[in-house]
């Protein structure tokens, strides 16, 4: 006995501590120390050019002074950029969600046979493993600059999220309802329509709305690498040192995203 708890009159302990997550104290403190040492070392060898940083402050000051006041002079460009982003986001959401549904069914362990399950999971992992910016660079190379590359990129991005979340929801369904449909002699497709779809429908709608919101945000980012939409407008403004126009674009992006966040939040709250 390494520790003897204090005892009450009846001989029962009156102190209690939650058992530590890692029982071995050597391993526990060793891990903490290792993490601390690694972070110290990583910071130490990180190349930081202090002269360059001090210049950077001046440059940042110049950009910001050039950005004020924001210029809405070329609002026509701003609006058409946004409408293109919206178009990209809507097309990508519709396409992504439509593709996500069959992939989610393939990737649900409880419904799909083993080989199909592996294919479904692989598709999701591939879609998730690349950041949209990297996917956008590939698609811009493949189909050229412009919104089409953006739509394709965000379809991949949507599949990575929607199919994964939907597959997890399908794996959580109440199996009793499926059993009931099998017991009446229903075939595979009617069983899905009656026992599975009604259970996953609220999640499906919520995910689609969330994804539309998310695609609108992501469309601004992938535009910077040439995939169309407001991001391209922003990248061009920076490229031409039009910092006041760039600030105007940034303000509108933030406003639109806040608005879409509020709207989609309201809709999702009513469905759940």
């Amino acid at each position: 006995m390494s520790t003897t708890p204090a005892h009450t009159a009846k001989g029962l302990p009156d102190t209690w501590r939650r058992p530590p997550m890692i029982a071995n104290p050597l391993l526990r403190y060793g891990l903490l120390l290792a993490v601390a040492v690694y972070i110290g070392w990583a910071l130490w060898i990180l190349p930081i050019d202090w002269a360059r940083v001090s210049q950077g402050f001046a440059r940042a000051a110049r950009i910001f002074s050039g950005a004020f006041p924001p210029s809405f002079e070329r609002s026509g460009l701003l609006i058409s950029g946004f409408l293109e982003s919206l178009k990209i986001a809507i097309l990508a959401t519709v396409g992504g969600v439509l593709l996500s549904i069959p992939i989610a069914f393939m990737a649900a362990k409880n419904l799909a046979p083993r080989p199909v399950y592996l294919v479904g999971r692989a598709l999701i992992i591939i879609a998730r493993s690349f950041h949209p910016v990297i996917v956008a660079i590939i698609f811009v190379k493949a189909v050229g600059f412009g919104p089409f590359a953006g739509v394709l990129t965000l379809i991949v991005y949507s599949i990575g999220f929607v199919a994964k979340m939907l597959a997890e929801r399908i794996e959580e369904i109440d199996w009793g309802q499926v059993e009931a449909m099998r017991s009446v002699g229903a075939g595979y497709f009617p069983t899905l329509v009656y026992a599975v779809f009604p259970q996953i429908m609220p999640r499906q709608i919520g995910l689609s709305i969330y994804q539309l919101d998310s695609n609108l945000r992501a469309s601004a980012v992938v535009g910077i690498v040439g995939a169309g939409g407001i991001g391209s407008t922003l990248a061009n403004a920076f490229g031409r040192y039009d910092y006041d126009f760039a600030l105007a674009i940034t303000i509108v992006i933030v406003a639109v995203i806040l608005l879409s966040e509020a709207v989609s939040g309201q809709i999702r709250k009513r469905i759940w």
């Binding site: 017991s183 009446v184 229903a186 069983t191 009656y194 009604p198 259970q199």
Partner: peptide
């Protein structure tokens, strides 16, 4: 053959989000 065997469950196993009529008609799915 399963159409000829009716089953009643402890947890009812109704499809919660469908109407009573749809649940009843699901007995005809076979």
């Amino acid at each position: 053959a399963r159409r000829r065997i009716g089953m009643i469950f402890q947890g009812f196993n109704l499809v919660d989000r469908l109407t009573v009529m749809e649940n009843v008609q699901s007995g005809r799915l076979g």
